[in-house]
């Protein structure tokens, strides 16, 4: 479904995405995992043809650069945060996107109903909650029943309940045979949805792996944030990765996903390497749904 070859994007001297290549078969779910600034969003924009880049990308065999319109017709895109004119009513907003995708009114209504937004057509976008906006974005993405759904941190602005709803919807889409490509830094989403995980670090694919390899446990995962001195963060991340932990740096410490009954393991690993941990913080509501690997 997706074939990316040597995708590279630079902003001035900074390479946001470096030589990323991967293929994704139809019906699979791939997670782009990485810290903030790892290049997940830029990679998605390059794959959609919204951002000019080096390398090539094909969606469903259609070249994104030369036939961008046709390629994007195969994609439903859900951004991190839905950007609409605030004054627009929900009904007219989705009708506009329905018009762009040659979708009739009945399909628009069905799409709204599928995400629980039926009856809200008269509401203005500015009056929608974050969760409703995200569901609207999902409804728009599903309008033409595209085979590929691309999501850029779809739950980052939602509370736990909203996240659960979105993840459940995505799970249903996956079961219905849709291809999913999504960026996330939440282990629970990745474990629940992804068949494969591309770990991005500084714009490059550092590992092409699975959720089971990243978090080799069937037990619930807890994400902890370790606060260290700035100078030791990079070294600590390396040490933890060598010890098999899933780590990312997000500018406010070191986030590590660990089994709930082994929360002290990374601290012990760091202590063995003479790296001092100043503080530890449990990141809340990272629940693993039942039946996940």
């Amino acid at each position: 479904m997706i074939e990316a070859e040597g995708i590279t994007k630079s902003f001035g001297r900074v390479e946001a995405v470096r030589d990323v290549s991967f293929t994704q078969p139809a019906g699979s779910a791939v997670a782009l995992w990485g810290s903030n600034g790892a290049g997940k969003t830029t990679l998605i924009r390059c794959l959609l043809g919204v951002m000019r880049c080096r390398g090539s990308a094909r969606i469903g065999g259609v070249d994104v650069r030369s036939r961008g319109r046709q390629a994007r017709a195969l994609v439903g895109y859900v951004p991190q945060e839905l950007a609409f004119h605030d004054d627009v009513r929900l009904g007219s907003a989705i009708l506009f996107f329905g018009g762009l995708r040659r979708v009739d009114g009945a399909r628009v209504s069905a799409s709204l109903a599928s995400v629980g937004l039926a009856g809200h057509e008269r509401k203005r976008v500015r009056d929608l909650s974050g969760g409703m906006k995200q569901r609207l974005a999902l409804a728009i993405a599903l309008l033409a029943d595209p085979p590929l759904i691309v999501l850029d941190e779809p739950t980052s602005n939602l509370d736990a309940a909203g996240r659960g709803e979105v993840v459940q919807t995505l799970r249903m889409l996956k079961d219905a045979g849709k291809t999913l490509l999504f960026a996330s830094h939440r282990p629970d989403e990745v474990i629940t949805l992804a068949d494969r995980v591309l770990v991005l670090e500084r714009g490059a694919v550092e590992r092409d792996t699975t959720a089971a390899e990243l978090w080799p446990t069937e037990k619930p995962v807890q994400v902890i944030r370790l606060h260290l001195s700035m100078a030791s963060e990079a070294h600590a991340a390396r040490v933890l990765r060598e010890a098999g932990h899933a780590v990312h740096l997000n500018g406010q410490g070191l986030c590590v996903a660990v089994p709930r009954d082994q929360k002290a393991a990374p601290i012990h690993t760091l202590a063995c390497s003479q790296i001092q941990v100043r503080d530890i913080e449990m990141l809340d509501d990272v629940d693993i749904p039942e039946g996940t690997p």
Partner: peptide, 13 residues
């Protein structure tokens, strides 16, 4: 407003 990127992600040129 950030709406341009979303518009360009649709099947339009």
């Amino acid at each position: 407003r950030g709406t341009l990127l979303y518009l360009l992600a649709q099947p339009v040129s």
